[in-house]
Design a protein around this nucleic acid. Sequence first.
RNA 1: GGCCCGUUCAUCUAGGGGUUAGGAUACAAGAUUUUCAUUCUUGGUACAGGGGUUCGAUUCCCCUACGGGCUACCA
Length: 513
Amino acid sequence: MSDRRVRVRFAPSPTGTLHIGGVRTALYNYLFAHKLGGDFILRIEDTDQNRFVPGAEAYIMEALNWLGINPTESPIHGGPHAPYRQSERKEMYRAYAEQLLQSGHAYYAFDTPEELEDMRTKLTAAKVASPQYNAVTRNSMKNSVTLSEDDVKRRLDAGEPYVIRMKLPRQEEVRFHDIIRGWILVQTQNMDDKVLFKSDGMPTYHLANVVDDYLMKITHVIRGEEWLPSAPLHVLLYRYLGWEEVMPQFAHLPLILKPDGNGKLSKRDGDRLGFPVAPLNWKDPLTGDTTSGYREKGYYPEAVLNFLCMLGWNPGTTQEMFSLEELIEQFSLERVSKAGAKFDFEKAKWFNHQYLLKHSDSELASEFMPLVQAAGFDRSMEYVTTVVSLVKERANFVNDFMEHARFFFEAPSSWDEATLGKKWKPETQGILEGWRDALINTDDYSAAALEAASKAYLESIGVGIGQVLQAFRILITGLPAGPSMFEVCALLGKEEVGARFSKALEFTQSRFA
RNA sequence: GGCCCGUUCAUCUAGGGGUUAGGAUACAAGAUUUUCAUUCUUGGUACAGGGGUUCGAUUCCCCUACGGGCUACCA
C-alpha cells in the first residue's frame, strides 16, 4: 500500500457551477498529487440522472483549465481507467452489488416510497431517536431478509422495482483514520442500511464511489467534510468487498462558510453579498439563473488559487503569496485546519491587487487595451501604458481601471460641484485662469516642467498650491482625487489641457460668479 | 431530535504545559504624497464557559454552551 503510486481524484457532480469550495477541493487534490509525483484524476459522478445539467461538465473542465489545475486523467483527457463518467461505467457496478448479495452483506428491498415514508413517520411518532432502515427495522419491511426466497424470486422475475441495500451489522464499531482529523469512531447502530443500487439500475454515490476508487487505484480520498458521516459506510464497503488492504486514506476538508451569519457558503450568498462564489460565469440552461464568476469579475487565476489555498491551510510560516509551484512544494494535508473557514472577500480582493501589481505596466496595458477599445477610444499602446502606470495603485482589477482613468480618454462632461463649491472663493476663478495661461505658455510638457511652471506662477501671485490644487484637478478631470496632476497634464498635452481648462472655467464662471 | 466533526483578535490563522499569545486582512491614528491610492510607523480587540490533571494550563481530560455537517432510490 505504501509503495503504491499516489493517485487522487476530484469527483464532482455535473449539476451546475463548480462551487468555490469544490474548487478548493480540486486544488488540494492537485497540489497533493503533484507534490508526491502522483496522478490527479477528474471523475464525473453523474449517477443521478434527475440532477444532470447539460454543460456543467464542460464548465468544470473549463474552470480547472482556467485555474491551471488540469487533471492528468479525465473524460476528455482519457486515461488507463476510462471511462471517467460514472454513467458510462454503469454496467460495471452491478457485479459488485451481486457480490455483496452473495456474501450476505446486501439484500433486495421492495419497499415503495410510500412504505418508507410510513415507516419513518411511525418511528418518529413512537419517539425513536433516529428513524432509519437498519438491523432492527429491516425485519418489518419488504425485503429479501423477511420475504421467502420464492417470493423474492417471483418479484424479481415479475420485474417489480427494487433496490439493493447494504446489510449492516447490528452493533459493531467502525474506526478509521482521517489524515486531518485523526481517528474517527462510529457505531453501526447509528448508521443505516444505505441503498447501494437504485431501482433505475444506477448505483448510488456510495457504491459507485468505492468501486471506482478501487478500480482506479485511488490512494487518497480528499473531499469535503460533508462526506465524513458516510465514510464509515465506505470503510465497511471496502471490507465486505475484500479490498481493505488497498483502501485509500481519507482526508476530510473543513467547509467554507458564509462570511456573515451561519452555514456553508452557497451560490445564493454570492449574489446577496456581491461577490462571486463560482470560478466562471454560469447560466443554468434549465432555470435561466445566472451565477457570476471570478474570471469575468477580473480576478487572476493565480490570485484565486492563492487565496483559496490559504482558506483552511497554511505553510507554518508567515509567507502568504505563493505561486502554484511553491504551493506544490509546500503543501501538506497535515497542515490543513479542522474548523470551517468564513469566506473573507476583502482578503480576496487584496490578493488580486497584489498580483495586479506584480504585472509590468506593458502587461497591464495589453490587458487594459481591449477595454479601452470597447469603450470607443483609440489610443496608442504607449499612451495606455502610461495611463496604467498612473492608476494601477488604486485599482484591484484591470476591470476597475477605466473607472479611475476615463478622464485620460475624454474630457469630463461634469465637474464635482460639491467639492468645488467647498473650495471655491471669489478669487479662485482669477487664479485658475492665470494658471491656465501659465500652462498654455509652457512648451516643455514634461511633468517636472509643468510642476515648475505651476509653482512659479502660484508663487508669483502669493498663493499656496494646496489652496487651489483640488479645484484645478476637478476642472481637468472632473474628479476630486487621482494621480499627480502634473503627470496627468503631461500625458494630456498642451492642447487638451488648454481646451479643458477653458471649458471648465466657463462653467465655474457661470456657476460660482 | 439523533449521530459525527469543530471552537485563538471583526476575518483568515501561528503557537501548543511556563510566550509581552505572533503574522496577514479589515479598522483607527500618524508620517509621506499639499488630493486619493500606494508606502512606512503606531494602535486596539482573541485562547467560549465550568470542572479536573499539574508546581503551572490557551495548550491534556471531562462536562456544558455555541457553530457546522449528515440524517434521500442527491451527490
